[in-house]
Write a protein that binds this DNA or RNA. Sequence first.
DNA 1: GTTTGAGGTGTACGGCGTACACCTGCGGAT
DNA 2: ATCCGCAGGTGTACGCCGTACACCTCAAAC
Lengths: 233, 233
Amino acid sequence: MPEKRVYLNRDRVLRAAVALADEIGIDALSMRRLAQELGVVPMALYKHVQNKEELLDGMVEVIIGEIDAPVVDAEWKTVVRERVLSARRALQRHPWARSVLETRTRQTPAVLDYMDSFTGMFLDGGLSVDLTHHVMHAIGGRMWGFTQELFDDSAARKAAPPMPPEAQAAMMRQMGDSYPNILAVAMASAHDEGTAVGHGCDDQFEFEFALDVMLDGFERLHERGWSSRRAAV
Amino acid sequence: MPEKRVYLNRDRVLRAAVALADEIGIDALSMRRLAQELGVVPMALYKHVQNKEELLDGMVEVIIGEIDAPVVDAEWKTVVRERVLSARRALQRHPWARSVLETRTRQTPAVLDYMDSFTGMFLDGGLSVDLTHHVMHAIGGRMWGFTQELFDDSAARKAAPPMPPEAQAAMMRQMGDSYPNILAVAMASAHDEGTAVGHGCDDQFEFEFALDVMLDGFERLHERGWSSRRAAV
DNA sequence: GTTTGAGGTGTACGGCGTACACCTGCGGAT
DNA sequence: ATCCGCAGGTGTACGCCGTACACCTCAAAC
């Protein structure tokens, strides 16, 4: 008796891709090689992902899924710290992940979910919306291992045609349902412009903010004679 | 009269590659396209660079060459700040540069020169070798726009066969001539192992160091009621 | 039992990096 | 003046890549 035919699906494709990239490296991961791994002809994959870009997007989603949920009942610093370290662990399990993440500009729901949850950790900790905004920018580099313009919508706006106001409002409402924290921050940073969706951020300001946080921190450690030997500050 | 034939050379190839990448994007930059731009057959390029990897390495060198020298006669924080901002400007002029830099693991002389000079800014500012070490790790992400394990030689050591002691000593001597600051830091961090060249770094420690500098900084700003409106701390 | 459409197939195209054999013409030695 | 070596440019070819497009298959819905 022939066993029942097992169909591929998007999830199996993505998981196989992640596993294969772990094994042979991201450069060697081709549609053809992945298809072979799945015992299928290359073009079969295109029934489950539109193209290789979308495959990579999906792989990122898998990695994000491996990041632990925030711990509860702890000071915000602890919550954030643990979360970042968990993200780091996930990225370390898949050495290729950082460089792939780097090249993704599409903000998939998984990414937005994560960002929203992350934003919430600061807001729940009592930080102001304003500070949270800049902090999110600054910590982006640590969270992922690199600097990404998290709230940067300039690329998206370039692609999208100007939107009629009612559509924009609808989008906002839907965004508010799914990503309330992001919305709160985005709204607040939109103060000085007419549009509701924000005007993008002042990258230079955000960069200097993060830089100065670090430099000031270094200076304090220097003044205190910090040493890694006995790293009790 | 036919004008004198103009030969290609490595430098012209690299500059053309940078200009072309600026124009058409890094993804569209192929050996074939670059050759076409230079009015030459693709394989001609291989007389000047070994392969595409080396081309990319060379392009990075060009970008590094665009970073300003450190300002003189200023507090170390100012010196570092200006230098980082200059690096950022260079990377921004070539939007593809960050992702290329990200994928380079080879430490070319240009990269080492820059790192050495950078290390010197902290040491000259009076920071301890120990603190400088960790600070270099931490600021790596800001300097380039992403986190790179700057002093990480694990990849290099994996590739290189175990070296006879005298060769190692020779390398150290040569390194000391060219990169005295790097050497000082590397030596100091090698305390707890027999080898002279260091044992690589504790990535986890470095990561947490940088993370905690930022989190502590955020906390201070929060306590002080910092706001981006009037950003006088 | 027929229809239908999701899922898998086969072929083909244009692009990529680059190995390898070859040609060309300039600089220096004779 | 001639020759030679060789750095620099050429031409062809190979095996990869992503993916468009037409086609087939077969389980499930009717």
